[in-house]
Design a protein around this nucleic acid. Structure first.
Lengths: 227, 227
DNA sequence: TCAAAAGTGTTGTCGCTACACCCATGT
DNA sequence: ACATGGGTGTAGCGACAACACTTTTGA
């Protein structure tokens, strides 16, 4: 790749969420350079002069995981003068939702380790990254109610119990099983696959996929998603 | 004021909303410099090297209006490489809610005129400002349902009809008068002043104020605002 | 046969919608 | 007296919360 100019007074940081074994996790690196050497931090980077802003976090995520086509949204932009000790840097924060099973981690130059950490067990972070992370988590939690983004955390096929588990984990609430199923199914955005899980030592669950066509069609008709 | 360094590759832009005579309006300047000389644009500016990011739009608004203590939130950050024709500039967009009657406009250096324009009659704008404006309006419209920010557009004392008018204008919906009043009053966030409008040629309306204490107290108890 | 999760209906309550008339005031 | 907006009650419906048992499967 040709040498490209990096802009050095703004950066991007990514909060990458995944769901695994009943836990919501986020991806952190361990810094291998000063400042804040050895502390955990959000994966981030600079923006090239000839690169659209939103393309930068996508590139970073692709470099780390090989993944494309990732659900990603801006959280906000943070720019207190003292947020980075070396010089003035304003950072734009993004959050992403990925399927951990699809994810194969590559360690970058500025990191010695990389870990999926449950959001309830995040250690002390470098710089103001705790604040950035909290903002991202809050954005996720409020979006999940009004936009069917949660399917980005699940495999294509999932059971209603899987879905309820993710919702309960992300929103930190619990739902009544019968009410949850009624409500979700009545939205008509799930398609029954006709298939079932197998090889579990209890009754097998039906699996569903998210029906994006149906959802978009309903949006046209003024339908409002809400959980 | 001492000379301060401006950072030249990111900027802030403000979408300043006000409500007057049944219309939602926003403040635009007419550009008096190239590029896009003569086009209408959002008021904006650069950030000083030793200035917190969020302080910049506040300063800009203060310079233009003399106002302090303004409701203001980030909308998002826009950074396509081609958004500004001269060089690469990423811009952070804010929206503000003000009482037009409090507002006394001062024209800045980069503007020849400044106007309150109804949001339904916004003309062609400079650069990508139409996109920034649309994003701000959409943010306002979605926030208004879940956060009692609308009071920032009204004088301290207002009647229920005033309030309904603003809601109808901002959300572009209409509400049944009886249902609206019942719903708002049941929230217990309005305080009856005991006073009434006078000198109108019809029955006088009771006036209310927004009870911020009551609202905050309810928030503590897990109350969720919703209109 | 046991353990473990899947799947399924009914009832009460509450909030929402729809709807029409009288009241107070100034001209 | 009239024009103008202020102010009020009720009934039906639909969404939501609360609640417990039977079914399927593998070990």
């Amino acid at each position: 790749m040709a040498e490209r100019t990096e802009i050095d007074n703004f950066s991007i940081d990514c909060v990458i969420f995944g769901y695994e074994k009943g836990e919501l996790k986020a991806l952190f690196i361990k810094r291998s350079t000063e400042p804040d050497f050895g502390k955990m931090a959000l994966p981030g980077g600079f923006v090239y002069l000839d690169e659209d802003l939103d393309a930068a976090p996508m590139r970073r995520l692709h470099e780390m995981s090989g993944l494309t086509d990732i659900y990603m949204k801006q959280v906000g932009t943070f720019g207190r003068t003292d947020r980075y000790p070396i010089r003035r840097v304003v950072t734009v924060v993004y959050y992403a939702l990925v399927r951990i099973s699809d994810y194969s981690v590559t360690i970058g130059q500025d990191a010695s380790e990389i870990h999926w950490i449950p959001v309830t067990q995040v250690p002390e972070l470098a710089f103001d990254h705790r604040e950035l992370f909290d903002a991202a988590l809050q954005t996720l939690q409020s979006q999940v109610h009004i936009d069917p983004i949660i399917f980005n955390l699940l495999p294509d096929e999932f059971s209603l119990s899987d879905l309820q588990d993710v919702y309960e984990t992300v929103t930190m609430q619990t739902f009544d099983k019968r009410n949850f199923r009624r409500k979700i199914l009545r939205l008509n955005i799930l398609k029954y696959t006709g298939r079932k899980y197998s090889s579990v030592s209890h009754r097998v669950a039906r699996t569903y996929t998210f029906d994006k066509q149906a959802y978009n069609a309903m949006l046209q008709k003024g339908f409002m998603f809400s959980v």
